[in-house]
Each structure stands twice: as C-alpha cells, then as structure tokens.
Nucleic acid binder design. Structure first.
Lengths: 288, 288
DNA sequence: TCCATTGATACCTGCCAGTTATTGAATACT
DNA sequence: AGTATTCAATAACTGGCAGGTATCAATGGA
C-alpha cells in the first residue's frame, strides 16, 4: 500500500464518481479504477459498493475514510512543522548557566528571544563551568554561560559581560565604603568563596587578588550558590569576593564594595559548539 | 512522497546504518540511499547528518521520526480495525497491564466486556508503566493499567483500585500475623522488590515505607514479575512488599500480612489517550 | 430507439524503484 | 606503515507497474 492509494481513495470517497475523482487527481479514469481495486485487494476489504451506475461507500469504507483523512492531515501538518523546525523558527534551546552568572544577561537574552523568536522554547540548567563544557561537547547542551579563560578547540567563546570584583560584607561591618582602600584591610576576616570545583579559574583569580595584596585569605566556607554565599555573609560568617554585577537582583542585608586598584576582572562568556546543527541555536546566536 | 519513503526512513532512523537498514528492508543499500535522498529533497529538509562513516538524525529528523512512527502505527491499527469491521466485529482493544496489576480488576473488565460488547476482541500485553505510556502515545496500545502519580498531558488517568501494601513472607517465617506491629521488625531480612525501571514511583514508595520505619532495606533481588517475586519469597530468599490485592489468584506457600499503620497506598489506574480514534475504546470506556 | 454517461477491461509505454558493480573515504588490524 | 574491512555514494542497467488510449457493456433519460 502506498500513499497514492490513500489519496486516490480520498478523492473517490468524496466525489463518489470515478470520472470526476480522476479529473481532480489529473489522472485517467481507468488508472484510478485499477488503483482503487488494488487497494481493496491489498486491504482484503471492499470499500465501495458499485451498482453499474452509482458508487457508494461501504460501512468499512466510511470508517476508513475517516482514518485516512486523519492520517493525511496529520502527515501534512507534520511536513509543515518539519519545515519550521528545520528553519529554526520553532525548537528548543538547552542553556546552561553558572550560579555566578549575572542577573541581567540571561533574563535579557530570554526576553529578546521571547519577542524575536517566540516559538523557540528554552530549558535552563544551573551547572558548573566544567559540566557545561562537557555537556556542550556531548551535544547535551546547546549554549552555556561560563567564566573561563579558554575553552577546548571544538567550542567557541564570546564574552558578554566584563565584570570587576566586589567585596561583599555584612551591612554591620565596621569598615565603610569610603574607607575601603585595599583588600588587605580584610586580611583577618574569614572568606566565603565559590567552590574551586565549580570554577577553578575563578577561584584562582580570587586567591591572586589577595596574594597581590600580600596575604592569603582564611577560607572558612565554600559554596556553589551565590545566594548561599550571600546568606552566610549576611549572618556574619565571613566576607566574600564576587563579580560586581551580582549586586543587583538580591534583597539582602549585605554591602557591596568594589575592590579598588586591582587588575583582575572576570568575564562572563557565552560558549557553544560551532558544529552543533540545532537550527534554534543558529537563529539565536545573532541575538547575543 | 510515498509510504515507502516513510518506512525506509524509519528503518534508517532506527539502525543509523544504511547497510543494516537495507538488509532489514530486503532491498539493496544503494536503492535505500537514493530513496532517503529523494525524501529529503521532497521535504526540502535534511533528516540525516552523514560524515563518511556515521549517520545521525538531525533535530528535524528526530521530530520527523516521532511523527512517522505515529502515522505508521495509526495506519496499521486502522487497517486491523477495518478488517474487523468488515467481518462484522466491532473492533479490537489492545490492553497493556502491569505485572503487579490486581488479579481482580482486569478479569472483571474482560468479563463485563464479554457480556456487554461480545464483538470486541482484546489483546493483552504485560508491560512496564513507562512502556505503556509510550505505546499509548504512539497508538500502539489503546488502554493501560498502571501505577503512576501522573501521566503526560495527552493522556488521561482514572483510578480503579486503591490498594494497601502487604508484606509477603514465607509460610515458615517466625513472625506470625498477630505479632506484626511494624515493618521495622523485618529490618534484618532481605527484600525482593519490583525493579525500579519497571515502575520507579512504586519503587520509591516502598523505600519510603521502610525509611519511615527507620531503616533502609537490604535489597537482594529485583524482578518485574509478581510470580517470580512470590517464588523467591516461597524459597526463603527474602520478603517482599506488594499491593495487598495480589493476595488472590496465586497458589503459593507464602503469607500476606498487611503492613499496619502506614500512610502509603498504591492506586491502580486506567490510562488512555482521549484523541484515540479506536471505536472499540469509545465503547469500552463507559464500562470502567 | 438513440444517445449520454457510467465504470470496467485490454493493451501499450515510459518512468523509476531496485539491481549489480564500483569508487572513495574512514576506520580497524596487523 | 600497510593492509583489510566497512561504510555511503555514484554509475549504469532493467523490469515492473502506474498511468495512458481505445474500447466495451450497462444504465437511464430523451
């Protein structure tokens, strides 16, 4: 059985007249007759009742017409949908992001995406730098927001936000912003950092900030979640060094103080795999 | 486009290897290559990613595979229904059921069906929860008996039997029914459970029963068949926790003891797809 | 009675699905 | 490194069948 049989059957079932159906299908009437006969043989079921002048659907034929209509329509819509997916108009984008990603960049992207490509859906997952790289390489993720100095050859990286570092202290901390001259003023405080296995590069950078100031920080706590770090700071368990952009978006009793006179900075970057053929990714890349 | 293209596409999408797919289809590999190429041209969409050694589905291809599976299955079932209608029967109902389904519910339904809709025939298949959901979605099954907390949006679920949990022990087990106060009395026994891939929800529930009683069960064996589990218990290889309704219907040297004082219960539910067009299903739904 | 219109039959033909033989490239095996 | 193996694509051929024309047999309206 072929789709041809079904389309011919549809036409005859609607016209109930071989000549007219054949005309509509742009084929000859004898050809149509034969195809319908063959369909009936293939199915082992009589679909039409002919009485030398009139054509009528049998009970089985009525049922089959319904099903054939359904299948043909479904196939037609699948073909259309397929085109949309292929052109990237609809699709899903799997995005990974760092817990220390900005509170601005990701929402901005999603907003832009929503207005310019409303049929592209997203799935978001908070993951470490290393995990994002691995998952993008394995095609389990389309795009990631990371803080890394470099990525493997098969990925590309594009910086999206350059960030200075800020010290985060409890609101009640005795040293006020205007007196903050050097990070070494906090050499005796406990420090709370992002875990090194979460982002090793990031961890090293923060250590180098302290080292440049001539001390090695007492690291009391480590966490992978920005919010957890802030809560710990809030409760007086220590001070933290984080990207300045994290200042926005949280409502906490902590004070952000940009660290003066240091060369270190951090860049939030988007990474992806150029050979990833997800059409949705190709549509989204120009937006970043 | 013809059905031939779709069937060939299915085969290649499953094998991801032209040679093997061609073998399975009993045609030559070059012929298959050409037909797939032609299908891609007809659709105007690339379905496979080839790199001189490996064949992979594109994103669009993954979508299309799903749709093609659905259409082919639907058409297949329509053909079968058609034969039944033509031969005077109303239709066939394909029912899936869990190994841990009750011994009462399914026979009851079949008896009722036999008296009220004698022209509807049934085919029964024992399948896991996940498999039933998938097959119903793909129109390979009309109705399923499952134990699940929820089902995908395109299916509906109706509870048919609320069941408590019972402990199953060998007849010779030293703790008699009247002394059974808590499951924690069996903390040192080995446990035999339904496999978690058979029904994850179910598995978790049993673990939670033990956890609530303050211990974590030593799981020695897992099986997907109720009878296997009972045989293992019978032979002293451990104890099992199963729905109480399984008590009936087996003739075994085991003792069922309802677990006292626990909130957990399990519901056997019927699931089906509302848009399923099988006329037999529509006749049967009011009976449940 | 004649004619218009129906679907079925007989026979023909050109296209294309499927074949075999081969290439070329990438991987696995010495 | 060199050889064997395995993959998909290409080229050239062919046979079957979809679709064509011509025609028939029947029905029903004048």
């Amino acid at each position: 059985m072929e789709l041809r049989h079904l389309l011919y059957f549809q036409a005859v079932a609607e016209e109930l007249n071989y000549r007219k159906a054949a005309e509509r299908l742009y084929i000859s009437q004898p050809g149509l007759s034969r195809q319908i006969k063959q369909l009936e043989e293939l199915l082992g079921v009589q679909l039409f009742e002919r009485d030398k002048k009139h054509v009528e659907l049998t009970v089985a034929g009525v049922y089959f017409k319904d099903e054939v209509d359904f299948v043909i329509n479904h196939l037609e819509s699948a073909k259309n949908q397929l085109k949309l997916i292929d052109s990237g108009k609809v699709g899903e984008l799997r995005i990974g992001f760092l817990g220390s990603a900005s509170n601005r960049v990701l929402p901005d992207l999603l907003t832009k995406l929503n207005s310019e490509q409303p049929l592209i859906t997203t799935s978001l997952e908070e993951l470490s730098n290393a995990m994002q790289v691995e998952m993008i390489q394995k095609d389990k993720l389309d795009m990631g927001f990371v803080r890394l100095a470099s990525v493997p050859d098969d990925l590309v990286m594009k910086p999206v936000l350059r960030d200075s570092f800020s010290l985060v202290v409890p609101e009640s901390h005795p040293i006020p912003v205007q007196d903050f001259k050097s990070i070494s003023q906090f050499r005796d405080d406990s420090f709370i950092l992002f875990s090194s296995d979460y982002s090793n590069y990031y961890y090293e950078q923060i250590l180098s900030i302290c080292k440049d100031s001539g001390f090695s920080p007492k690291i009391r706590h480590k966490s992978v979640h920005a919010l957890t770090i802030f809560r710990l700071v809030e409760n007086g368990l220590g001070v933290a060094i984080v990207p300045t952009s994290l200042k926005e978006g949280y409502d906490l009793k902590v004070r952000f103080m940009e660290i003066p006179g240091i060369p270190q900075f951090t860049e939030l970057s988007v990474i992806w795999k150029p050979v990833n053929r997800n059409p949705a990714l190709i549509k989204v890349l120009p937006l970043i």
